[in-house]
Design a protein around this nucleic acid. Sequence first.
DNA 1: GCCAACGTTGGC
DNA 2: GCCAACGTTGGC
Length: 138
Amino acid sequence: MASCWLIKSEPDEYSWQQLVKDGETQWTGVRNYAARNNLRSMATGDPVFFYHSVKGTEIVGIAKVIKAHYPDPTSDNPAWVAVTVAPFKAIPQPVTLSTLKQDPFFADMDLVRQGRLSVGKVSAKEFRRICRMGGLTT
DNA sequence: GCCAACGTTGGC
DNA sequence: GCCAACGTTGGC
């Protein structure tokens, strides 16, 4: 069973729309150990929520890991890793952070509990529920 | 190895 | 623009 994840990006830096346009992108530049450990745990094919931080503060799409972790090409330090992701599905009705915060079901989610973590884990239950809230049947 | 100071992220 | 949360750094 695949694990589910969430990655954050400021839309001014790199948006979901840009990912769709690019077709795929290398997720580089993570310089936090907890986030790095999550990157390392990702497997090819894992679904990844794409969250817009600062502007929007909502989950706008689902990406997929198409290449598992490798040394981050933007760093000389082999401790840092990157993955490659591709867009999978847009979320018809983006799910906002405030919506998630209002629902105790999501109280344990990395996104809610640890606001600054840029790469977080999502449980299968949380994943399905967010998909449904976003207007996806899967 | 503790902890104060400082820097950064990101919600509001 | 403010500030809370948290990570990192460096003095001791």
